[in-house]
Amino acid sequence: MATAVIGIMSMAAALGAPIQAVSADAVTRSADAASAAPGYPWSWPHTGPRLVIEPFRAPAHDYGPGHRGVDITAPIGTAVHAPAAGVVAFQGVVVDRPLLTIDHGSGYVSTFEPVASELSAGATVQAGDVIGMVDIGGHAPRGTMHIGVRVEGVYLNPHPLFGEIPRAILLPCCSD
């Protein structure tokens, strides 16, 4: 078992992936919040590969470090689709990145960046509607899109909203 854990940690370090312990309670909370979301399960926001470049990392407290969403591969110019019905709450540039925020009701709000859009606040969108295109700017690496989701102002891991719960996968480490 220790060899497998060391192998996973070595592989993650080699890939530049952060190592984070996630409690079973945190996964259950995210899954419970996701299944209560309007329109659950949500549609994936683009048709390309679902490769997560930077996973969700919950902060220890409201102002602590973390990654309050996921960064997924999405080449510049990729069409971005509304994951669930809602109303555009914000569309514009914040600091150096274009972003779009959708209020899905029942306290669920999603944000996509960098996403350039011609929609304006108050526009109604349905699940699957094109809401914009992946652009450049912001903290997410070029060719990726950041997806953040809040429920009543608290960020949660977006994966369970899409019917996907990230799980650890044990891979063979070494041969003797």
Score class of each variant (00 low, 15 high):
I8A: 15
I8Q: 09
S10N: 14
S10T: 15
S10Q: 11
M11K: 09
A12T: 07
A13R: 12
A13M: 12
L15F: 01
L15V: 01
L15R: 10
A17Y: 14
A17D: 14
P18I: 03
P18Y: 05
P18T: 10
Q20P: 02
Q20A: 08
Q20C: 00
A21W: 02
A26H: 12
V27G: 09
R29D: 15
S30L: 00
S30H: 10
S30E: 07
D32E: 14
A33M: 14
A34D: 13
S35C: 00
P38H: 07
P38K: 02
W42Q: 04
W42E: 03
S43Y: 06
S43Q: 15
G48V: 10
G48L: 12
G48R: 12
P49R: 06
P49M: 08
P49T: 15
P49F: 01
R50I: 00
R50N: 11
V52E: 08
V52T: 04
I53F: 05
E54F: 01
E54D: 08
P55S: 02
P59A: 08
A60R: 13
A60Y: 00
H61Y: 10
H61P: 03
D62F: 06
D62V: 12
Y63M: 12
Y63G: 05
G64N: 08
G64Y: 01
P65M: 10
P75S: 15
A79W: 05
V80E: 04
H81C: 08
A82H: 03
P83E: 03
A84E: 07
G86P: 05
V87T: 15
V87C: 01
V88D: 06
A89C: 00
F90H: 12
V93E: 15
V95Y: 02
D96F: 14
R97F: 06
R97N: 13
P98K: 05
P98S: 14
L100Q: 11
T101P: 05
I102N: 03
D103R: 04
D103V: 10
D103S: 13
G105P: 15
G105D: 07
S106W: 04
G107L: 10
Y108V: 09
V109S: 03
V109M: 03
S110E: 06
T111Y: 01
T111S: 11
E113G: 05
P114I: 06
S117I: 05
E118N: 10
E118V: 06
L119D: 02
A123Q: 09
V125D: 07
A127T: 14
D129W: 07
D129V: 09
D135N: 15
G137L: 11
H139D: 13
A140N: 12
P141H: 06
G143D: 13
H146D: 05
H146F: 00
I147A: 08
I147P: 07
I147L: 12
E152T: 11
G153V: 14
